[in-house]
Design a protein around this nucleic acid. Structure first.
Lengths: 215, 215
DNA sequence: GGGGGAGGATGATCATGTTCAACGAACGCG
DNA sequence: CGCGTTCGTTGAACATGATCATCCTCCCCC
């Protein structure tokens, strides 16, 4: 027992075996993700073939499928990574806002700003979101649940601070806000709206939606 | 000039050449549509392969592409045909309603009732709608424009009849209603809601959306 | 009525997502 | 250490959507 099994590192992190094999697999996985992110961005979802990605990552076609069930899962993984980065920003934006409208426009603005920087990836994400496996669908829904909750928190705060009536159905309201945002998000992507255009539209819509709820 | 060219039929219909060849092509097209509708319904979008469809229609694979640019266009064609059938029903439902809410729930109910009868086709339609060519996207949007207009008419009537305030932004309101319906429609399909469940949900949401607009 | 041309149909062919048997290196047990 | 097992990797093979040279039938003009 001298050199083998890198388990030596002061453990206490996660009960995960860090054998050489596992490390290699992890590196492989990361190489695929890096290559895939680049190619998806450059060529869109359909344009980036598994063969290209595998070659760019320096491995055979089949190796990709050892780390990812299918192409859409690989893609979802990339989106999820992005999402985790912006979720913190969205939370922050909502927290520092003064009014409900500010909070909602703030957090949606953050998300869209982030995504609009890489339109090809974003477009691809929309196209894929409704296409592929139920697994991908559920995963996407799960990601969104967090954002949905963020909206709920903003609404609740507005109630507590007296901006909205006490008897509103916050869940229902949050759902409507979210539905409208998603619809606009799609339009924005397809028609190449700026962040400002999206927010202006959303602002108008929020006025209508909250019309009956303001205190 | 005795038997050839079926142009003999008392014309005056459309300035379209009814040569034997054109007729044959039209028949081919219809055979493809019939076979495709059946197979899409039975097996979903991915499950129904072009080869299967072609064989069921009694022709070669390539022949399908002579009538339709690609698989998604063939599929869109089927949906559009359906849509034209229900559009009349939706118009009727909206017209005979007494209130705005009745009108909207009525026309959405008609659409969903119709579709829910053939869930596989419907599921497939949702998945395809965001996937394929921009051409398909634009075509779908065009279809929806009619429904969108229907909503606008219902709102306008409500204003005229004094159910809604005169100064509402009908276009904005219609858009929100539509966005919310689409979102619910997707949820309904994926989660297998009944028509009643969908309408109940929509009814609640309409209350919120119209809260500030009622006269 | 006949010959040149147009255009629909065919099926081999290609590109791509995905699977799978086979390989070999890492693993872990004695 | 030695050895059977596990498991990541490979590349050929498969299914499918789409294309295209080619064929052949029908059209149309002379």
């Amino acid at each position: 027992m001298s050199f083998v099994s890198v388990n030596i590192e002061q453990g206490a992190e996660t009960p995960v075996k860090l054998t050489r094999r596992a490390l290699a697999k992890q590196r492989t996985r990361e190489r695929v993700l890096a290559a895939a992110r680049r190619l998806f961005s450059e060529r869109g979802y359909e344009g980036a073939t598994i063969r290209d990605i595998a070659q760019a990552a320096g491995m055979s076609t089949g190796a990709v499928f050892a780390s990812f069930a299918d192409k859409s899962e690989l893609f979802e993984e990339i989106l999820t990574a992005d999402y985790e980065v912006i979720y913190a920003q969205m939370t922050q934006a909502a927290r520092t806002a003064k009014t409900v409208d500010e909070a909602l426009l703030g957090l949606f603005g953050v998300a869209y700003s982030f995504h609009v920087e890489q339109l090809p990836l974003l477009r691809a994400s929309i196209s894929v979101s409704w296409t592929r496996s139920e697994a991908a669908e559920r995963r996407a829904r799960n990601d969104l649940k967090h954002i949905f909750k963020l909206i709920g928190v903003a609404l609740q705060r507005a109630v507590d601070e007296g901006q909205l009536k006490k008897d509103i159905d916050a869940k229902l309201l949050a759902e409507i806000v979210w539905d409208v945002y998603v619809a606009n998000y799609r339009r924005a992507v397809y028609d190449g709206w700026s962040v400002e255009a999206l927010l202006a539209r959303l602002s108008d819509q929020l006025k209508v939606i909250f019309a009956g709820a303001r205190a």
